[in-house]
């Protein structure tokens, strides 16, 4: 018995010495210490020995088991030590993640802020008529106030009641369409493409994006307009963004305002981007003109509301410090891939 144990101990020592892999260690473990191994079953053989031989045999069996176990463990440790990983300072293999266009990201970010404030998002047509682009918005057919809305007209036969067809020059026609169809209370934002016959350069484009917003109810007032826009400024730009409301003129709102945000670069101290004023013009807004409400058969004595409109490209350019509007439409992959949803 003792000889047999010695023999096994010797075998194990040799076998473990020549081990190369973790798998071989597992195999040896099974072979020498596993359920079917000699050592596992040796206690029964010891029981059949003469009583005086038993203690020594038992002791030897235990020490052999222990020895093999620790040899295997040692070998496993030394194998692990030898294991070579990859030099992780080597450059990684590139992974590309596709994303939305930066303008889509900005539109969605802004719409989400307004959705949180209780607005719904709707969409409108890009082909519109004079009635919806101008008249219903209190913009007279031939007046200097229309100069700001130079427009692409379409070679389509004019509509008898709505006038000529055109590409909307702002998203405000959607305001009219929605108010015409539905009753207050209303709180809606409308993102979309608009068109103006401007020659393309770093800051002009004949196609760009706007977001229109409006709310109509019995007691909506100018302070609510301020509240909604202050929240917008804080969430879309930064928590410490300040807003400045300047009186302005738009035919479709009264009172009207232009809104500036504190300069994102110098936070109001003055720098070349804000032309040393500390402010950046960001949107136009006001209380919806009673003539506009009348045009959609909403009684201005009972209901009132506010409206605002902003240029998406301008906001994206300010947010990211992009200096050329054409970059949005040239679609260079290296440009597009820099942006992601927030």
């Amino acid at each position: 018995m003792l000889n047999k144990l010695k023999e096994i101990s010797e075998q194990a020592r040799q076998a473990i010495n020549s081990v190369q892999t973790i798998q071989q260690i597992r195999d040896l473990q099974t072979r020498f210490l596993g359920r079917k191994s000699f050592l596992a079953n040796a206690s029964q053989s010891i029981a059949s020995l003469a009583p005086e031989q038993r203690p020594l045999a038992g002791k030897t069996l235990n020490s052999v088991k222990k020895e093999i176990f620790s040899l295997l463990e040692e070998k496993q440790k030394s194998l692990q030590k030898q294991e070579q990983g990859i030099d992780i300072s080597l450059p990684g293999f590139p992974v590309e993640i596709a994303g939305s266009h930066p303008l889509t990201n900005v539109i969605n970010e802004i719409c989400r802020v307004f959705e949180d404030l209780g607005f719904e998002v709707q969409q409108g047509s890009e082909i519109e008529t004079e009635k919806y682009n101008f008249q219903a918005l209190n913009i007279p057919l031939d007046h200097p106030s229309r100069d700001a809305f130079d427009t692409f007209y379409l070679q389509l036969p004019a509509d008898r009641t709505q006038g000529r067809y055109l590409l909307r020059s702002h998203t405000s026609p959607s305001q009219i369409r929605i108010m015409e169809k539905r009753k207050p209370p209303l709180a809606v934002v409308v993102p979309g493409k608009v068109y103006r016959p401007d020659n393309v350069d770093a800051s002009h484009s004949f196609m760009f994006h706007q977001i229109e917003g409006f709310a109509v109810d019995r007691e909506i007032n100018f302070s609510h307009l301020k509240g909604v826009l202050v929240e917008f400024g804080r969430r879309v730009f930064s928590a410490d963004t300040r807003l400045r409301f300047r009186p302005h003129f738009f035919p479709f709102t009264e009172p009207s305002a232009e809104v500036d945000i504190s300069c994102l670069l110098c936070s109001g101290k003055g720098c070349p981007v804000c032309k040393h004023s500390g402010w950046l013009e960001i949107l136009g807004c006001g209380m919806i003109h009673p003539n506009v409400l009348r045009a959609v058969k909403i009684n201005p004595a009972k209901f009132q509301g506010f409206a605002f409109g902003m240029g998406v490209e301008r906001i994206a350019m300010l947010k990211y410090g992009i200096s050329d509007i054409r970059l949005f439409f040239s679609n260079h992959k290296k440009f597009l891939r820099q942006f992601y949803e927030v």
Binding site: K226, G227, P247
Partner: peptide, 29 residues
């Protein structure tokens, strides 16, 4: 409304308070 603008303009748009309206939100399109 034109006169209200005059009042607000001379008094100062900056003095108009900032309030959030209660809007009953409907789902987006």
């Amino acid at each position: 409304e034109d006169v209200f603008e005059e009042i607000a303009r001379i008094y100062g748009y900056g003095k108009i308070p900032v309030n959030l309206p209660l809007l009953s939100r409907k789902s987006s399109s």
